[in-house]
Simulated assay, not measured.
Amino acid sequence: MEMVEQLISRTDAAYQRWLASVTDDVVADGVVMYCLESLLERNTTYGIGKWLTGYLMIGQEGDRGFLLRCDGGGGPVFWADLGSLGEVDLAVVAPVFEVWLRSGFALPPDPQPDLPPTADVYVDKVPVDAVQLLARARKLLGVAWPFGDLKGLLAVQPFLAARSARLCALRRDLGYAPELRPYLFYATDQGLEAVWPTDSPESR
Rank of each mutant, 00 (worst) to 15 (best):
A169K: 10
S9I: 01
P117Q: 06
P111V: 09
L115M: 07
T45V: 03
A161M: 03
L90K: 10
G72K: 08
C35N: 04
P127C: 06
R102I: 01
R42F: 06
T45F: 07
F97T: 13
E37N: 03
D12T: 14
D129K: 12
A165P: 12
M3Y: 11
D29Y: 10
V128L: 14
L19G: 02
Q157A: 11
L154N: 08
F185N: 11
S21E: 15
G104P: 05
T188P: 09
G47T: 01
T188A: 09
D110R: 10
Y183I: 00
V26K: 09
L160M: 04
G30T: 11
L56P: 08
E87K: 05
R138L: 10
A20G: 08
D81K: 01
S200Y: 05
R42P: 06
P197I: 00
L141I: 12
L174T: 14
D24N: 09
L36A: 15
Y176W: 11
D63I: 05
R10F: 07
A187F: 13
R64E: 15
L160C: 14
E179V: 06
Y183R: 05
I58Y: 09
V32K: 04
D114P: 01
Q6I: 01
M1F: 08
V4N: 08
V99G: 00
D129P: 03
P108V: 11
R10I: 02
R10A: 04
L82F: 14
P76H: 00
G152K: 15
P109E: 13
Q190S: 10
L56A: 12
D199F: 00
L133M: 14
V123T: 00
L160I: 07
F78E: 00
S103I: 00
D12M: 10
T44H: 09
M1R: 13
P201F: 13
P95E: 12
R69K: 12
E193S: 00
Q6N: 01
A187K: 15
L101Y: 14
G30I: 15
R171T: 03
L39T: 02
D120F: 03
D81I: 02
P201G: 07
G49A: 11
P117I: 01
A80R: 02
G54F: 00
F159M: 07
G191N: 01
C168E: 15
V92H: 09
L140K: 07
P116I: 14
I48R: 13
L170W: 15
V96N: 00
E98Y: 03
D199I: 00
G83H: 14
G59E: 05
E98N: 07
P146M: 00
L39M: 07
Y15D: 02
F78D: 07
S38Q: 08
